[in-house]
């Protein structure tokens, strides 16, 4: 199974939200990294067949998803970045409703809902109205909803927003377990969300794909660009204005800087191995 994005463009007025974007997703977890406004949500909406692109197409095994229509959506699970809920529904109603919408038979639906609510830790409160839930609980309900139909293609737009560290870790485990044999696309600007679990990472910038590689190779492109350097506290400002400082740590009298730079920031700087955070900063220097 492969999901191919073919020269996709979405234009809002003069703004190109997605700009000639082409990529092929295969099975495994694909992390989509990008700063605010880089076009992740727009891309995902098009991939979920709820937004028409200005041009280009999304193909599942060579067939346009709008042609596949129901057959495509049957395979799809989607967690939107912003989504609402029915205030007077309980979590149980909400899950049953989407089970019906995704075509699960009633009995299967009830078992599946029970199982998923249990997984996201909402089973105990399933009879309570959603309007009484906290933000994190609603987000978890959204995740459960996306998984109801056991989707082969799972699109998650900033799934960890609002989750506390414990839930975040739990979420990563759920997704890792789930990923086998499925195409998962997960957008975020939180690097640690994808650092450990993604098989591939894509970096989106101004609507374009600016880099993609497997997670272990993605940092190769900047492997000579990350430096460690000890400076006097009075010099910190000067380095900060000239370079991307990805970390800053006080050690005794001195300050230890981690710098992302194509050229050596100083004679005394030593090369260190890059991580994803460095890469992110390297790509979005002006923007974050």
């Amino acid at each position: 199974m492969e999901l191919k994005i073919n020269n996709l463009t979405k234009q809002y007025g003069s703004k190109l939200a997605v700009d000639r974007f082409s990529v092929t997703f295969t099975e495994g977890i694909n992390g989509l990294l990008g700063a605010n406004g880089s076009g992740k949500t727009t891309l995902m909406r098009i991939m979920c067949d709820i937004l028409r692109p200005t041009s280009g197409e999304v193909l599942l095994d060579g067939v346009n998803i709008t042609t596949l229509d129901e057959a495509y959506r049957e395979l799809l699970g989607y967690l939107p970045q912003y989504f609402g809920y029915y205030p007077d529904f309980s979590a149980w109603d909400f899950m049953l409703y989407f089970s019906a919408l995704k075509g699960l038979p009633k009995l299967t639906a009830e078992n599946r809902c029970k199982e998923l609510l249990d997984t996201v830790g909402l089973y105990e409160v399933r009879k309570k109205k959603i309007k009484t839930y906290s933000g994190g609980m609603r987000q978890r309900l959204g995740i459960a909803q996306a998984l109801i139909n056991d989707p082969k293609i799972l699109i998650l737009d900033e799934p960890t927003v609002g989750l506390d560290p414990k839930e975040r870790a739990k979420f990563r485990n759920i997704i890792s377990d789930y990923a086998i044999g499925k195409i998962i696309l997960l957008s975020t600007h939180i690097v640690s969300d994808v650092e450990y679990i993604a098989d591939r990472i894509m970096i989106m910038k101004n609507g374009q794909l600016s880099q993609q590689a497997t997670t272990d190779r993605i940092c190769d492109s900047i492997k000579d660009f990350v430096w460690s350097l000890q400076v006097a506290p009075k010099d910190v400002d000067s380095y900060n204005s000239r370079f991307i400082v990805s970390n800053l740590k006080h050690s005794g009298e001195m300050v230890e800087l981690r710098i992302v730079s194509e050229e050596r920031p100083s004679e005394r700087a030593a090369n260190v191995s890059p991580n994803l955070e460095d890469l992110y900063l390297y790509h979005f220097k002006g923007e974050v």
Binding site: R73, P80, G84, A100, L101, G103, Q145
Partner: peptide
């Protein structure tokens, strides 16, 4: 904003 959930579901 439940439209995104609904319209991306099979039916």
């Amino acid at each position: 904003k439940t439209d995104s959930l609904i319209l991306s579901a099979k039916y």
